[in-house]
Every structure is written in C-alpha cells, then in structure tokens.
Design a protein around this nucleic acid. Structure first.
Lengths: 129, 129
DNA sequence: CGGTATCCTCGGAGATACTG
DNA sequence: CAGTATCTCCGAGGATACCG
C-alpha cells in the first residue's frame, strides 16, 4: 500500500487505517488524553518502534494531535483531533455492521457447533450453464 | 494482521478490509456482477494470485458471493452479498469524512502551495511544563 | 520518558508455469 | 477462463542499543 493507484478517497483512507493498530489507537484515545507509555500499556504487543510510526501516521493524517511537554522525564500526550473524534462513530458503524452481518448468520444456524468460515464456502452455487 | 489481539469487532473488520484491494473490489462490484477477468481489467496492477486470494477472503467474510458456471471456457461471476451491499454506504461515509477532514484544511490555507503533510507536523505544540 | 538508528528475519506478494 | 502450485525476493516490522 505504498502509493495510490486510484483517485478514490476510500483508498486514501484505507492507506491510513489499514493494519491492526490505527483503529485500535483511535479507540484507546477516544477515552481521552493518553501518554506514549499509556498507549504501550494498552497494547502490550505493539513494539516501541511501530507505536511511534503509527502515531506519526495518524498525526500526519490529522487524526491525532501530539503535545510535547518540556522537562525531565520527557512527557508527550496524544489526543484525538476534531477530525479524529468524527471518525469514531464511523468506525462504530463499521463494527456494528460486522457484528450484524455476522451475528445474523450465527443466529440462523443455532444448534450447529459454529463451523463459521468453512460453511460459507459451502454456499458456492454450482450452476449448469 | 494474522490473529486478533482484542475482541473488538473493529479489529475483526479491519482484518478483512485492510490493504489496497478489498475496498476497491467492493467498489467495482457495487456496479453489478463482474467476472474474474473483468475485475482483473478493472485493476490492472493486481496479480492473478492476489485477486483470487482477496476474493476468497471477501467471500469467506460473507461480503462477496461466487457463482461458478460449468462449460468451456470456464466462467465465474462475483457479486456483492446483501451484507456487502450494506457495507458500501459505510465506506462512502468514510470517504466523505476523509475528503472533509482534509479538504477543510486545504481550504483554510488557500494561497500556500500545499505543503500538506510536513505542515501538519509543524503544528506540534511546544509547551513549557 | 519518548524517539531514533541499526541490524536481521520472516512472510506477503510478484512471476511463472501448469491443470480442469 | 479461473484457479493452484512453486520459487523467489523485498521490505514491513521485531529486537536492541543509544540520545535528549
């Protein structure tokens, strides 16, 4: 996903939000100001390096703001920008859509022991031309 | 993005939609039924292999349906499922949000020759503790 | 504490060729 | 035409160490 190949805004958004971390970070920040180390604690599996890179990306995209305080030990606080705040309900909608498009299928096949993904492949229609 | 680390539905969605192709494919399919070769023509830069993989992913996620017709030469048609159709307006909303959060910044800095990304970094607030 | 630089590895994805 | 299999390679991302 290095460079864009269409002029579609969706592709631009996905270039920012793709991957495991961007959306998770937005979600953690939605609860309010967080320091770098807070975010590390929130996502123990993200590496030091990736956290800074992802935060820079979100910052450059105008989704997250960074406030640097002088003194020792260093202190930096991250927040959602207004644009970032507007993004939250959209992500919520996506999450809702997913649980729905998905939970629905699960409910309609109640007693089966959840063969989920393989079962969908069985829906392949075989049609005699 | 192999395995999930939170139970957040957003992370599940992003696992499916992350990357350049999933959303583009959804967009091309929104215009109606497409054959495998149509989708290749729509995205000349995607490799044969990746296209099949991405389509499988979307199919297993219940976003795309696959119809296989017997005969020679082989023929396979792809369509959005009802869930996939519901996804489209959500992606549109994301695209709108982006153009907005973004176009707004551009409009508010009219005569400057669009230093976009670097200029945002200049917004770093330096605050004396 | 927060960030950068360096090294290293492992798997995502391209190219190619083959099958039904 | 649509899909699979094999090989290969590049770069995203982890580990580590050092700076302000």
């Amino acid at each position: 996903m290095k460079q864009l190949i269409s002029q579609c805004p969706i592709e631009e958004v996905m270039q920012i939000l793709s991957g495991r971390w961007p959306t998770l970070l937005v979600y953690y920040l939605k609860d309010g100001t967080k320091r770098f180390s807070d975010l590390r604690r929130d996502n123990p599996t993200i590496s030091h390096k990736m956290l800074t890179l992802e935060l820079r990306k979100l910052e450059n995209a105008g989704i997250v703001s960074r406030a640097e305080f002088e003194g020792y030990p260093l202190r930096v606080e991250y927040d959602l920008t207004p644009a970032g705040l507007q993004l939250v309900p959209l992500l919520d909608a996506l999450g809702g859509w997913w649980e729905n498009a998905n939970g629905a299928a699960q409910v309609s096949v109640p007693p089966v022991k959840q063969p989920s993904s393989d079962r969908r492949r069985a829906l392949h229609r075989k049609i005699s031309s």
